[in-house]
């Protein structure tokens, strides 16, 4: 089985889906001859031509608005937003249309659209190439929001997203686009939407996380084991909404302790929702406070980004806090 990075796995997912289904098309800025600024759509235009790999003008609102019409017609568009930081021009289209057309039409129309986009920090991208805006989408009824953390999951989740009849916001943590390699089957498979991945089994404390923070959490768990002998369990949500509540509850049944790690700003981040969900439904399982490790409530800074983002020290502090409660 070949090993590949996330960019290659995503490229393969798109290629396989476009071969499988003539309704699948790709559109976005520089996705054609340039192959996308991160090369996720590399050489697709050579195989599928300009009608199915569409270089659009620089207009996120236009890309999404046009893709909505295509999806209503029955195509399966995969729209690339070059950086998720630029999606706000398309926000009206996403919130008012992508998310609501099924409801507005009483189920007569649907928008089977995937909006995929590089997200998150860690590459010195500054304020407008580093954001983690997933909460806006999680908060919007009608959308599915996904963020893979491995090449295998990236391929399987993108294929599942293209096939589902609901719109998907597919966020790709660009800092791990090329840093993680693993074996990825060349054949067809999907990773089911709504199911978390158990990254590491443990018995003392549960970390719920996703995206690039999975790897920071693994490092922090090693430190906690070294220093204190604590056994950390790590869950990678993969699908952020609807998140896998069963996986979360099952884990804290065992550990009784919960830390949530994400890059997105703390206030009303997904950590807040998971924390509230556990408080509402399973407070008796908890042996200490739920602690969130998140981006600070500031704009994403160019300087000191590694200090702004959750890092091993901060995750370790959170583990320590719940373990010593």
């Amino acid at each position: 089985m070949p090993t590949m990075n996330m960019v290659q796995a995503l490229n393969q997912a798109l290629r396989e889906e476009m071969r499988r289904d003539p309704r699948v098309i790709v559109l976005g800025e520089d996705v054609g001859y340039r192959g996308g600024v991160f090369l996720v759509t590399e050489k697709l235009i050579d195989e599928f031509g300009e009608l199915r790999v569409i270089d659009t003008p620089l207009t996120e609102g236009g890309i999404v608005g046009i893709a909505v019409g295509m999806a209503m017609y029955g195509l399966r568009p995969v729209a690339e937003i070059q950086f998720i930081d630029f999606v706000y021009e398309a926000f009206d289209q996403i919130v008012s249309n992508v998310a609501k057309i099924r409801y507005r039409s009483g189920g007569q129309f649907s928008v089977p659209l995937v909006i995929r986009s590089p997200c998150c920090g860690g590459v010195r991208g500054g304020m407008h190439h580093s954001q983690s805006p997933e909460s806006y989408f999680i908060h919007t009824a009608g959308l599915i929001t996904i963020m893979p953390s491995t090449p295998y999951d990236a391929k399987g989740l993108l294929k599942a997203s293209i096939r589902v009849d609901d719109p998907v916001i597919f966020l790709e943590p660009k800092s791990i686009y090329r840093t993680i390699r693993e074996e990825v089957p060349e054949e067809d498979y999907i990773v089911p939407i709504g199911k978390a991945r158990l990254v590491k089994e443990g018995s003392d404390v549960t970390i719920v996380t996703y995206g690039a923070m999975v790897y920071k959490s693994i490092e922090a768990s090693k430190l906690a084991a070294e220093k204190h002998g604590w056994d950390v369990e790590i869950i990678d949500l993969r699908t952020l909404m609807p998140f896998d509540r069963e996986a979360v509850l099952k884990s804290i049944e065992k550990t009784g302790r919960l830390v949530i790690v994400h890059e997105a700003p703390k206030t009303l981040g997904l950590g807040a929702e998971i924390s509230a969900y556990v408080a509402e439904n399973a407070i008796e399982l908890l042996r200490g406070p739920v602690v969130r490790v998140a981006g600070y409530d500031t704009p994403f800074p160019l300087v000191h980004e590694k200090l702004y983002m959750p890092n091993v020290a901060r995750i370790y502090m959170a583990i320590k806090k719940v373990m010593e409660y």
């Binding site: 009608l51 999404v64 909505v68 019409g69 295509m70 999806a71 017609y73 008012s96 039409s105 129309f109």
Partner: peptide, 29 residues
């Protein structure tokens, strides 16, 4: 859907790019 009428979005003008994308999809197909 039967009458080939897509219900309008109340936010003014949202349907303009939809109509274009819909027509473009038909052209592609």
């Amino acid at each position: 859907r039967d009458k080939k009428i897509v219900p309008a979005p109340v936010p003014v003008g949202n349907q303009i790019p939809h109509a274009v994308g819909f027509a473009l999809a038909a052209k592609i197909m």
